[in-house]
């Protein structure tokens, strides 16, 4: 993605890869790209109650040259599309895109001629976040899943080929819900459920047991 692509193979080691990925994920600066109501939730995620600074991303850069992550928050109209692309092109490598909300992910309820039906028509998207608008926890969940993906990204062409030879990344990477990933007992439950193919049932069963909705 970045400079490491141009280094001849065989120089970098796996440990360096971990270190580089860790530094990248721990200071992921988002570019503000608020286009609609999702941007309000994005601002809330940066505020004191949710405080994204805990993950090293307190500065929402208004300048694309200083940003690593573009959070496309809101519906992208046909007129805005070239602007989105330009902002993306101006960001330095490595860069990631998070499509926040259903409008950015697929057009959502605006299935009409004015709205781009998914921002992935314009820029490559690394994480889709449904919700209309998604609550700040959902945004943080998406960002933490993206962190997980960044942590497991191969560094350079050689490592990528090696990973592909092994059959691609672990299917758990970037798919565990964050509240399960950060809780050891629940994480074990999830891993077992993945083996049995009933993750969604586990989620519903746990929700019913927690019983917070009763009251």
């Amino acid at each position: 993605m970045g400079i490491e692509e141009h280094i001849p193979g065989g120089i970098l080691l796996g440990t360096v890869e971990k270190l580089v990925n860790w530094t990248r994920k721990q200071s992921l600066w988002p570019a503000t790209f608020g286009l609609a109501c999702c941007a309000i939730e994005m601002m809330a995620a940066g505020s004191a109650r949710y405080d994204m600074a805990r993950f090293g991303m307190e500065v929402f850069r208004a300048s694309p040259r200083q940003a690593d992550l573009m959070i496309v928050a809101g519906r992208v109209s046909q007129k805005m599309a070239p602007v989105v692309r330009q902002i993306y092109d101006q960001m330095p490598e490595p860069k990631w895109v998070l499509s926040m909300g259903v409008c950015a992910s697929s057009g959502g309820m605006f299935n009409n001629y004015a709205i781009v039906q998914g921002v992935d028509h314009i820029v490559p998207v690394d994480m889709y976040l449904p919700g209309c608008p998604p609550r700040p926890e959902m945004l943080m969940d998406a960002i933490l899943k993206l962190h997980d993906k960044i942590m497991n990204e191969p560094l350079g062409e050689r490592r990528r080929r090696k990973l592909e030879a092994q059959g691609g990344p672990d299917p758990l990477v970037g798919t565990i819900p964050s509240s399960y990933r950060y809780n050891k007992a629940k994480r074990r439950q999830w891993e077992q459920a993945v083996a049995e193919g009933r993750q969604e049932q586990l989620r519903i069963a746990n929700w019913m047991q927690e019983g917070a909705h009763r009251g």
């Binding site: 798919t175 519903i204 929700w207």
Partner: peptide, 24 residues
């Protein structure tokens, strides 16, 4: 339900089928 952690890196995975939606 109140479950909201739905983010995914592929659009295909966001289409939930009957097996995923059915209660345990």
């Amino acid at each position: 339900s109140n479950e909201y952690e739905l983010a995914s890196d592929s659009r295909a995975d966001l289409i939930y089928t009957k097996e995923q939606l059915l209660a345990p």
